[in-house]
Design a binder for these strands. Sequence first.
DNA 1: GGATTCTAATCGAAAAAACCGATCAAGAAA
DNA 2: TTTCTTGATCGGTTTTTTCGATTAGAATCC
Lengths: 300, 300
Amino acid sequence: MRSLPTLRQLRFLVAVVDRCHFGRAAEFCLVSQSTLSAAIQELEDVLGVPLIERTRRSVVPTLVGLEVAERARAVLRDAEDLVDVAMAVHDPMSGPLHLGVIPTVGPFVLPRLLPSLWQAFPDLKIYLREEQSAPLLARLGNGQLDAVLIALPFQTDDLDLSVVASDRFSLVVPKGHRLGRQTAVAGKDLAHEDVLFLEDGHCMREHALAACSFDGGRRDSAFAGTSLLTLVQMVASGLGITLVPQTAIESGLLQALDVTIVPFVEEAPARKIALGWRKASSRKETFRLLAAKLEECLAR
Amino acid sequence: MRSLPTLRQLRFLVAVVDRCHFGRAAEFCLVSQSTLSAAIQELEDVLGVPLIERTRRSVVPTLVGLEVAERARAVLRDAEDLVDVAMAVHDPMSGPLHLGVIPTVGPFVLPRLLPSLWQAFPDLKIYLREEQSAPLLARLGNGQLDAVLIALPFQTDDLDLSVVASDRFSLVVPKGHRLGRQTAVAGKDLAHEDVLFLEDGHCMREHALAACSFDGGRRDSAFAGTSLLTLVQMVASGLGITLVPQTAIESGLLQALDVTIVPFVEEAPARKIALGWRKASSRKETFRLLAAKLEECLAR
DNA sequence: GGATTCTAATCGAAAAAACCGATCAAGAAA
DNA sequence: TTTCTTGATCGGTTTTTTCGATTAGAATCC
């Protein structure tokens, strides 16, 4: 059984490293300077390494001090999360919630969502992570995430899903493009067009491919967009046309771009935005309430 | 500033959850039972939640108790790592080292390597993780791993690499196969054979494809192996032939299989096994010494 | 040059806590 | 019923933590 530093000591260390000043760190930690000073010394004793370089007049963290402080931050954060999780049994809408979001959804719906969520659930600490569906689901599986906001259809196992919105696609063409003069288009109208897609890995690539009536396997992948933003800019430069979801348009993705939006004929292709969580999760109530709120926000 | 539980309390909780017994947990923690009992109660006070269900005669963790204990384990482990890292300044070959290894290397070289490493660097705590190159490099990038053992050629950025071995490929064919009668083969001999490859994502797939003189894009991916082991078993069942690296053969991958090993003619295709770490890492000395030891072990 | 200021370390006393052994209480086993 | 096991409780002791006051070293000001 080895001796560990105290969480309090770690907190003191972080405070000192952040401020490079014992007095102010002590003030911040609500203890006397002598207490803090002694605590840091003891920490250095336990670790057997000087963490702070004190030349009379200046306080500078050692290289090791910086590294240790960085790890201390992580330990403290996890400890706080632990407390939050324990406290959250009293209120499903409190505590930390690590939420993953895909790149074709996050930037466009989160600005609309987050203010409402903060208002509705002020005790919910939402940590966000933006990645593509596959890595997101991996993180969900191993517990690094509590829930994910993804787009369907997508292959998911062992997941509870709650659809919170339907997101129709529209066609975006350069100003003056032949299709821009139509009031609506159908999938087969695109057969001989240069349709640009997101690069592989984005679920929206598959959704868009499915929306067109052909296989995109032979498409020129050198022109695959790395994000919706680059994609529509390529469209504006006349490199081709593309499909964009309604949420992205509403969030102003196309502002100041010389492009024309053409809706699909009725029965427009669409993706579903859904909140997903582990079937085995112990916080289903949290996620159900969250999904309900998301649906309400996105309906407006 | 919120009040956090003590690391000691967390350690006590884990001990109790593991043993479902206060007395034995106290013994393990080298404290009296009353001390431990009081500590658990205080922890429950701080968190405001019962963690342990004490019905007379049985001690069972509550659901929250289990969750909190699981997190407590992580916090404690990270805190210990923090101490180890701090202590490691005195000796580059001590402290925790999180090492990632690819699946076509790990199972075949680690059994040979690890005993030597433990002997040479008894203070080095090696944590292992087996994954394909891409996710390994991602983890290396974000600090979840300190170093990776991968196979080259592979696209890597911002990495210091030290080649520790060259690993030649040989051809493996079912017993009685036409090519099994040759003393050596060349890449072009394989042009009309059913060559089996690993599934996409394994870097060895690319290495093997490069070793043959043709593009494998049209190959039947239904027969892509999920591991070297399944691959050679498919070969033994007569489904085709494949390439296997020397290290895997030496570790006994083909034992008790009805297959024939055919070397390539001189200039055999090969992959390089290399240790990689972040260019910005502060432990280069550790990795250099480690790489030297690996090279020495693999040379034998 | 000397007074002043700023800052971290040190010290001693007081307060807080952690800890232990003994004991108690309640259910299980004999 | 008696005994045994086991976690909670209590009282006293030891240890740790904390604070205020003071000291000491360097930069700054006059």
